[in-house]
Each structure stands twice: as structure tokens, then as C-alpha cells.
């Protein structure tokens, strides 16, 4: 399973989201890879991804995708990530 985290420039914010998404997945005992990308690279990165995590500000920039797009409000709230990933991944 593949999860993409996206921010505007593909480092900094997306790296924080990647770190905490991995912590959330560990808590859920879900085995998935988490790849950070930027707006320019999201289409390619998400081609085989099940979920895209990003900010509400960037949802429109993703465009057409088959992945579930999940908006994260607080990137430091692992509980929020756990709750939203649990719903999206249907565990």
C-alpha cells in the first residue's frame, strides 16, 4: 500500500506529515510506504497510491486522481491522522 503526502514544495511541511503519518500507520499496525511530493510531482507520485494526505489549501491543485484525498488540519496531531487513515483504509 502506498500513501502520498503532498505540500507546495515537497519538503518541510510534507516531511513533517510523512513522519507523523508513519507514526499513525504504526499505531494502526498498517504496512504502507509514505512518499513525500510537491504539487508538481503529485500526479506521478499518486498514480499507484491509495491515499493522498494534504492541506485543505492544496486539494484543488491535485486535480483528477483515483486516490482518496484526505485533508489534514493539524499536522502534529497523530490522533487526527490515525482517525482519518483508519476511515480511509477501512481497517
Amino acid at each position: 500500500m502506498k500513501i502520498v503526502v503532498m505540500c507546495g514544495i515537497g519538503l518541510g511541511t510534507s516531511a513533517i506529515l510523512k513522519v507523523n503519518a508513519e507514526r499513525a500507520l504504526e499505531r494502526l499496525d498498517i504496512d504502507a510506504s509514505v512518499q513525500a511530493t510537491d504539487v508538481a510531482g503529485v500526479r506521478a507520485a499518486a498514480a499507484d497510491a491509495q491515499v493522498i494526505l494534504t492541506s485543505s489549501e492544496l486539494v484543488e491543485a491535485i486535480g483528477k486522481t483515483n486516490a482518496d484525498v484526505i485533508v489534514i488540519n493539524n499536522y502534529f496531531d497523530v490522533d487526527e491522522l490515525v482517525a482519518k487513515l483508519e476511515i480511509a483504509l477501512g481497517s
Binding site: G8, T13, S56, E57
Partner: peptide, 21 residues
Amino acid sequence: VIREFGAYIVIAPGLALAHAR
């Protein structure tokens, strides 16, 4: 970065992570 992509760098209540490439 903010002019181009918006306020997404406000990643938690009350906190902005200012950065560029």
C-alpha cells in the same frame, strides 16, 4: 511559496512553518 500555494504552511492551530526550497 505562500503567494503561490496559499496558507498551507499553517500546519497546526496558531503555527506557521515558514520555509522554501
